[in-house]
Amino acid sequence: MEEILVVTGLPRSGTSLMMQLINRANIPILSDGKRESDISNPEGYYELEAVKGIVADNSFLKEAPGKAVKIVAPLPMYLDLKLKYKVVFMRREMDEILRSQEKMLQKDQISEREKFRTIYEFHLKKTYRFLLENDIPFIDVNYNRLMVDSEKELEKFKDFLNLNASLQELLEVVRPDLYRNRNEK
């Protein structure tokens, strides 16, 4: 695969889970492993420190063809258009994202929920617009469906990336205990 596999989506929408799936499917991950896993995300982040500097410097992407990298929305807007990409776009119920974030930040953000909802809507819109305008192939993977209808959602994802990994291997990654905070409404 010559493309760079970009996993994007809003924070708390299952991007880390997707990185684990990709890892299990033996696609190399562009990662420096700097950030330790923490309690609210036991499987660890697959995050690259250089992504945070993408606005000023996206040269780290030159190392990325054939590898996967997690870049949250709307940062894919700053991708180097001279390179080729495939994008997995993680989606999750907005209210769940907002609740999950509020919980992670451990502060009562109820009074800003609508603000963040709107900002995230804009981030999604911008990212989609960027992908469409630049003809970058992408697939939506729905986190909520991945939990209840895992096989179907995983097949879709496998097809998009032409993965050899067995469905069973992937299903093991999608463990229900990772579906955090869901029933704590």
Binding site: P11, K52, G53, I54, V55, A56, V72, P74, L75, I119
Partner: peptide, 15 residues
């Protein structure tokens, strides 16, 4: 436009 991304912790305050 970048300030928000900085505030959200997405990017570093380099600009």
């Amino acid at each position: 436009a970048l300030q928000q991304l900085i505030d959200l912790g997405y990017i570093d305050d380099v600009a």
